[in-house]
Amino acid sequence: MAIPTYASPLERTWAWTYRVLCVLIFVFLMAPILIVIPLSFNAEPYFTFTDKMLALDPDGYSTRWYDLLLTFGMKAPDAVRDGGWWADMWANSTWLKAAKNSVIIGFWSTILATALGTLAALGLSRPEMPGRKVIMAILISPMIVPIIITATGMFFFYSNPCGILQWVGISAQCGRLTSTYTGVILAHTILGIPFVIITVTATLSGFDQSLIRAAASLGANPRTTFFKVILPLILPGVISGALFAFVTSFDEVVTVLFIAGPEQQTIPRQMWNGIREQISPAILSVATILVIISVLLLASVELLRRRSERLRGVAPA
């Protein structure tokens, strides 16, 4: 974006205005994410920089909110920090429980969404696939349908899964999926699937179908072809789809609000409580940890994208 030497003064002014504008927009994008990091080390229960913090006085900073994350919900938070204290924390800390739930639910819904989504993407990218457009539209729709509608629909369905049978005249009652891990995992699987489908079909669009025929002509059966030829080539797309699915589950709060019980509280659910009831800087320390996690995830996705482009022979960025 170098300004050409023949530019008129007006154009020069505009070029500089444009640059300043872009910088301001980047500030708008990044400021809220960066601001939570220093504020999470606030020694006072305020959401603003205290005078001590501005003077870079070490007394103005503390890790008390991170400490609170660990101790909140513990039976004896003030006991001596020996083995018993750590065991108490591992078993009872509210946020740690939420983190465990988030990881369990995220893990299983990612596995399910990735497995089902990759299979479907393989089918969808075959030219013979009948009704391709309609099926694609249905599979992507969980991303488009307002989350509150999805959550309420699932709430009714999960409170009595067999209730659906009444439409064919059978009045049945069977176990409920609300307040169970299975229910939340299934709901998050549905929400993660569009991301897997989108990333894997994008990777497959650059996939050379003749490689499958080549493998077959060399005597490989479909299974061998999939594991030795197709999967290694589309793996970057599959993994980035899986990461998207994991983040979707890890960040999801509305279906958890409707479907989950007290045993399935996740990190976003705890944050929702914290923000609604009494917002404390402890929320900001969770936020800081989540920002660090998203930096790591973004870095992995970027690396995968470059690797995928290299594998597909697209010129590396």
Binding site: F26, L29, M30, P32, I33, I35, V36, L39, F47, T48, V247, F250, D251, V253, P268, M271, W272, I275, I279, I283, L284, V286, A287, L290, V291, S294, V295, L297, L298, V301, E302
Partner: peptide, 19 residues
């Protein structure tokens, strides 16, 4: 700078704006 907000939790961004 564009993708990092995209990957950051919605609740983090919302609470950041509250702050």
């Amino acid at each position: 700078l564009v993708l990092l907000p995209f990957w950051t939790s919605l609740l983090v961004r919302t609470s950041a704006w509250m702050v």
